[in-house]
Design a protein around this nucleic acid. Structure first.
Length: 902
RNA sequence: GGGCGUAUAGCUCAGUGGUAGAGCACCUGUCUUACACACAGGCGGUCGCUGGUUCGAUCCCAGCUGCGCCCACCA
C-alpha cells in the first residue's frame, strides 16, 4: 500500500489509517505538485470506542494521575465529592466530574503537583434501604439477621455491587489518583469521625436531647431538616370545637388525629375573645381529658379563630409552647406512625386514624365546625418519599451556632471564594439561619455513636482506641451518625487527619471544591464548619466552584419519577466519552442550569471528528514540529493563524482560570473549526502543492497550530487529543505535555486585516457563484485585478483555489464582473449570466447599504450625540457611513452596468 | 410567607450602554485536493410588557406579567 510510505510507523498513526471509509468515493489525495494522484483509501471517521479504553488504562499504569509529591511543584488538590456507593453515574456526575478533570488536567500540564482524590460515601439510609429491599425479596427483615449480621451483609453487598460508578468514572476518563481511593467507612476515616465527635462532645458542641425531629415512619429513623423535602399537597383543614357552649373554642388542623395528643389550647394573651378561658380547662373531644387554655405570644390572633390546639410532642411550635407552659408531652404515634393512645384508634396508622377521628367527631354534630380542602406544604422523606412525621424523640444534635458563624466569616472575609458570587446569598442564607443539626439516625449502617451509657445513668464518650467501659449494665448508643457527618470531614479525613500525615500537610487546604449548587447546604456548609473547627481555622478549600444542574431538553429537572433520566453511558457508547464531555463543558456556564440533549453530543462528536480529519490532513502532508521560520519567511496566512492561535490561547486560558468552561470550549470550537479548518487548512493547500520552502514553512506552522490546539483542548477531550497529539508529535503523552503559554509577540494585526480582506473577497465571490447557480466544483475562467497593496497581492493562487477560478486563457471574454473592495473579478461564464438573479442580489445589498447610510447619517446629524458620545464611537459611525457611501456608489455602478434582461 | 434567579432566532443558550450572536433545526446547491460526523450559500429576532435615566437602552433603574429554583414550625 503506497499510503504507508507517507506515514511514519507507530500505533497511533496506524489507528489513523485503519477503518473503513463510509463513502466509496472518498479518496485521500496527497496535495503535492510532485505526486497529485490518489494514494490510498483511509479511514475518514474517528472511532472513539477503539481508543478510549486502552488509553485510560495506559495513563493509570504510567502513574500520570498519582501526584509526585515533588516539593518543587506547587500542590493542587481537589477531593472528589464522594458519590454514593449505591449510585451510578448520572449526567450531573458526568458534568461535575468532567469539570474537575478539566481543572486537574490543566494544572498537571502547567506543572502542578496534582492530587485529585476519589472515593465513595457509605450513604447510610440509601444503602441500608437497598440491602433491606434485597432481604425483603428473601422474606426477611434486618431484624431477622440481627445488627451484626446485617452490617456484614451490607459490606458483602458493597463488595459485590457497590461502586459501579467507579468503573463509569474510568470510562469518562477521569484522572483521579486510584492509589488514594477512600470510603467514608474506611477504618481511618471512621477514626476521624470518632475523633471529631469526641472533640465536639468535649467542647459541648454536641448534645443529646428530646426534641421534635423529622421522623420517617418507613425508614424508622430521624432525619435532619434538609433531608426533608416539602411539596404542596392537598389536604383538609378541619375546624373542631373544643369545650362546650360559652366555654368552647374552635381550633383548626390538617392533622386531625394529633388531637389525641393535645395537651392545651393556646390563644394570644391580648385576645379578648378568649380572656375568660385563660387558666381554665376545657374538655378534649373523644377523650376523657380536660386541657388548659394558655396564653402565648406565638399565637397570631388574626389567623383563623385565633386559637391553636397544642400538641407538644408532634409539632415544633407546640413543643415550644409546651415547654414555656410546662405542658405534658404526649407522644401519640409510635415509630411506625401508629396511634398509641389507648382507645378505639389504638394501632391505627396515622392515615387511617385521620378519617376515623373525623368520623368519630362527627357523631356529635356540634364538634366539627368545618372541613375544607386545603393545600399546604407537607414534608416527605428525601429517600423514600414517605410523609415525615414531626415527633418528639431523644436524639443527638450538633450545636451549630458557633460553627456556622465561623463558616460564614470565612467567606465574608475572603478566605474562601464562592464562584460565581451570585451564589453567595444562598450560602449565607443557610449558615446564618441554621438550626441545630440532628445527627443521630436509627439505622444500623453507618458510624455508630461512640457513647456508652452506664447502669447508674453515666454517659461516656469514647475517642478512637479508647476501651469501652466494662462491667454490668453498660451499653453503647444504638444509633449511627448522619451520613453527612462523615462527608463533612472528607477534605481532611481522606488525607489522614487526625494524624499529621505528609498528605495532610501538603494537600490541605484543597484548592477547589466543585459541586452543584443544590448541595451547598448538605455538604459545602458542613465541610466548612467541620474543616475550620478540626483544622484550627484553616478552611477546607480556597474556592468553591458551583455548577448548575442538568435538565432535560425541555428544561425540566431530571428525576426517576419523571422518567426523563438520561444515562450518560448510552451517549458515551454512541458518540464517545469526549463527545459527552465536550458537550457538557460547552453548556457549563457557572452556576447556571443546563438543558442537554443528544444533538449537542452529536455536535461534539462531529467536532472530534473534525479534529481527527484536520490532523489526518496535516500528517498526510508532512506537518511536523520544529522551530518556526522567522516572521519574514512566513506567509501572511501563516502569520495570521499564528496571531489568532496565540490570541485564542490567551483567551481560553483565562476562561479556564475563571471556571468559564463553556467559553473555553466555545472559543476552541470556533477557532479550530472556523479558522483552522475552514480557512487555514484551505489556504495551506496552495503552498503545500507548490512544494519547496513555502511548503516546508507551512508544514511547520500547521504542526505548531495543531499541537497547541490539541494541548488546549486536552482537558476537555482527553482521548481524541491524546491519539492525535501523539501521532502528530511523537511525544509520550499529552497528559504530561506542557500547557501552552500564549506568546503575544505573534500578534499580527496587519496579517489579520489582510486575511480578513481575502475572506471577504472569497465570500462575496462564492455568493455570486451561488446566485449564478454554479456548481461548487465547476471551474470558471476569471481575471483578477487589484492594486499593489490589495488582498490579492500575495494570495491570488490561494483565492483562485478557494473559488475554483482558472486563469484566463486565450479567447477569454468576461460575461460578468464584480467588485469587492479594491479587487475586480471578471468571469467568463459559459452559460448565460443570470442577470435577474444578479440584479436581485445587488438590489438587496443596495437597500441594506442605504439603510445603513440613513441610520449613520441620522446619528451624525444629532448634535447631542456628537457632543456627548466618546470619540471612538463617533469615529466608528463615521467609518460606517463612509463605507456605506462607497458601497452604494459601487453597487449602483454595477447595477447600471448590468445588461438588460434578455 | 421569605429569598434568589430568569425572560434574546423554531429549540437550547451566549452576549454587549453605541450595526443583535452560536450550536442545532430549516431552505438551496454539492462527493470540490482531510472530513457528508462534511463543504458552500441562505432564511429567520420590536432582545417578555409598561414606564424612567441617557444624545442613545436588549443591556442600568422601577413596576407588572410569565416561568423556575431554594428556604419556611402559621394552626
Amino acid at each position: 500500500m503506497r499510503g504507508a510510505v507517507l506515514l511514519a510507523a507507530g500505533p497511533a498513526r496506524e489507528r489513523l489509517v485503519r477503518g473503513l471509509s463510509r463513502h466509496p468515493l472518498t479518496r485521500l489525495r496527497r496535495v503535492s505538485a510532485d505526486d497529485p494522484t490518489p494514494v490510498t483509501t483511509l479511514p475518514t471517521a474517528y472511532a472513539p470506542a477503539e481508543v478510549e479504553g486502552p488509553l485510560y488504562e495506559r495513563w493509570v499504569e504510567r502513574g500520570y494521575f498519582t501526584p509526585s509529591g515533588d516539593p518543587a511543584k506547587p500542590p493542587y488538590t481537589i477531593v472528589l465529592p464522594p458519590p454514593n456507593v449505591t449510585g451510578s453515574l448520572h449526567l450531573g456526575h458526568a458534568l461535575n466530574h468532567t469539570l474537575m478533570d478539566v481543572l486537574t488536567r490543566r494544572r498537571r500540564m502547567q506543572g502542578h503537583d496534582v492530587l485529585w482524590l476519589p472515593g465513595m460515601d457509605h450513604a447510610g439510609i440509601a444503602t441500608q434501604n437497598v440491602v433491606e429491599r434485597e432481604l425483603a425479596k428473601e422474606g426477611k427483615t434486618r431484624h431477622d439477621l440481627g445488627r451484626e449480621a446485617f452490617v456484614q451483609r451490607v459490606w458483602q453487598w458493597k463488595a459485590e455491587y457497590g461502586g459501579k460508578i467507579l468503573g463509569q468514572m474510568r470510562r469518562l476518563g477521569e484522572g483521579v489518583d486510584w492509589t488514594r481511593e477512600r470510603f467514608t467507612m474506611d477504618e481511618r476515616l471512621s477514626a476521624a469521625v470518632q475523633t471529631i465527635f469526641k472533640r465536639l462532645y468535649d467542647d459541648d458542641l454536641i448534645y443529646r436531647a428530646e426534641r421534635i425531629i423529622n421522623w420517617c415512619p418507613r425508614c424508622m429513623t430521624a432525619l435532619s431538616d434538609i433531608e426533608v423535602e416539602h411539596s404542596e399537597d392537598e389536604g383538609e383543614l378541619v375546624s373542631i370545637r373544643y369545650g362546650e357552649g360559652e366555654d368552647s373554642v374552635v381550633v383548626a388542623t390538617t392533622r386531625v388525629e394529633t388531637m389525641l395528643g393535645d395537651t392545651a389550647v393556646a390563644v394570644h394573651p391580648d385576645d379578648d375573645r378568649y380572656r375568660h378561658l385563660l387558666g381554665r380547662t376545657i374538655a378534649l373531644p373523644l377523650t376523657d381529658r380536660r386541657i388548659p387554655v394558655v396564653a402565648d405570644e406565638h399565637v397570631d390572633p388574626t389567623f383563623g379563630s385565633g386559637a391553636v390546639k397544642v400538641t407538644p410532642a408532634h409539632d415544633p411550635n407546640d413543643f415550644d409552647i409546651g415547654r414555656r407552659h410546662g405542658l405534658p408531652m404526649l407522644v401519640m404515634l409510635d415509630e411506625r406512625g401508629n396511634v398509641t393512645v389507648p382507645g378505639p384508634f389504638q394501632g391505627l396508622d396515622r392515615f387511617e386514624a385521620r378519617p376515623a377521628v373525623i368520623a368519630a367527631l362527627r357523631e356529635d354534630g356540634r364538634i366539627v365546625a368545618e372541613v375544607r380542602p386545603y393545600v399546604h406544604a407537607v414534608g416527605h422523606c428525601q429517600r423514600c418519599d414517605t410523609v415525615v412525621e414531626p415527633r418528639l424523640s431523644l436524639q443527638w444534635f450538633v450545636r451549630v451556632a458557633p460553627l456556622a458563624k465561623a463558616a460564614g466569616d470565612a467567606v465574608r472575609d475572603g478566605r474562601v471564594a464562592i464562584s460565581p458570587t451570585s451564589m453567595e446569598p444562598r450560602y449565607f442564607g443557610w449558615v446564618d439561619h441554621m438550626h441545630d443539626w440532628c445527627i443521630s439516625r436509627q439505622l444500623w449502617w453507618g458510624h455508630r455513636i461512640p457513647v456508652w451509657y452506664g447502669p447508674e445513668g453515666e454517659t461516656v464518650c469514647l475517642g478512637p482506641g479508647d476501651e469501652p467501659p466494662t462491667g454490668e449494665g453498660w451499653t453503647q448508643d444504638p444509633d449511627v451518625l448522619d451520613t453527612w457527618f462523615s462527608s463533612a470531614l472528607w477534605p481532611f479525613s481522606t488525607l489522614g487527619w487526625p494524624e499529621r500525615t505528609d498528605d495532610l500537610m501538603r494537600y490541605y487546604p484543597t484548592s477547589v471544591l466543585l459541586t452543584g449548587y443544590d448541595i451547598i447546604f448538605f455538604w459545602v456548609a458542613r465541610m466548612m464548619m467541620f474543616g475550620l473547627y478540626a483544622m484550627d481555622g484553616v478552611q477546607p478549600f480556597d474556592t468553591v466552584a458551583l455548577t448548575g444542574l442538568i435538565r432535560d431538553r425541555y428544561g425540566k429537572k431530571m428525576s426517576k419519577s419523571s422518567g426523563n433520566v438520561v444515562d450518560p453511558l448510552d451517549w458515551m457508547d454512541a458518540y464517545g466519552s469526549d463527545a459527552v464531555r465536550f458537550s457538557l463543558c460547552r453548556g457549563a456556564n457557572p452556576g447556571t442550569d443546563q438543558a442537554v440533549n443528544e444533538e449537542w453530543v452529536q455536535g461534539a462528536r462531529n467536532f472530534c471528528n473534525k479534529l481527527w480529519n484536520a490532523t489526518r490532513f496535516a500528517l498526510l502532508n508532512g506537518a511536523r514540529l520544529g522551530e518556526l521560520p522567522v516572521r519574514e519567511q512566513l506567509s501572511v496566512a501563516d502569520r495570521w493563524i499564528l496571531s489568532r492561535l496565540h490570541a485564542t490561547a490567551a483567551e481560553v486560558d483565562g476562561h479556564y482560570e475563571g471556571f468559564q468552561f463553556a467559553r473555553a470550549a466555545e472559543a476552541l470550537y470556533h477557532f479550530a473549526w472556523d479558522e483552522v479548518c475552514d480557512w487555514y487548512v484551505e489556504l495551506a493547500k496552495t503552498p503545500l502543492a507548490r512544494g519547496g520552502q513555502e511548503a516546508e514553512s507551512t508544514r511547520l506552522v500547521l504542526g505548531h497550530v495543531l499541537d497547541v490546539v490539541l494541548r488546549l483542548l486536552h482537558p476537555l477531550t482527553p482521548f481524541v487529543t491524546e491519539t492525535l497529539w501523539t501521532a502528530l508529535t511523537g511525544g509520550e503523552s499529552v497528559v504530561v505535555a506542557d500547557w501552552p503559554v500564549a506568546d503575544p509577540s505573534y500578534a499580527d494585526p496587519e496579517a489579520e486585516a489582510e486575511v480578513a480582506a481575502v475572506q471577504r473577497l472569497v465570500t462575496e465571490v462564492r455568493r455570486f457563484r451561488n446566485d449564478q447557480g454554479l456548481k461548487p466544483g465547476q471551474r470558471v475562467p476569471a481575471r483578477l485585478h487589484t492594486g499593489p497593496d490589495g488582498p490579492l497581492a500575495a494570495h491570488e493562487d490561494e483565492v483562485r483555489s478557494l473559488l475554483r477560478l482558472e486563469r484566463a486563457a486565450d479567447g477569454f471574454s468576461a460575461t460578468a464582473s464584480l467588485q469587492v473592495g479594491s479587487v475586480t473579478v471578471e468571469l467568463d461564464l459559459s452559460d448565460a449570466v443570470d442577470v435577474a438573479a444578479e440584479r436581485r442580489r445587488l438590489e438587496k445589498d443596495l437597500a441594506a447599504a442605504r439603510r445603513e447610510l440613513e441610520q449613520t447619517t441620522a446619528k451624525l446629524d444629532n448634535e447631542q450625540f456628537l457632543a456627548k458620545a466618546p470619540d471612538q464611537v463617533v469615529g466608528r459611525i463615521r467609518e460606517r457611513r463612509a463605507t456605506a457611501e462607497a458601497e452604494i456608489a459601487r453597487l449602483e455602478g454595477q447595477l447600471a452596468a448590468l445588461p438588460a434582461a434578455p
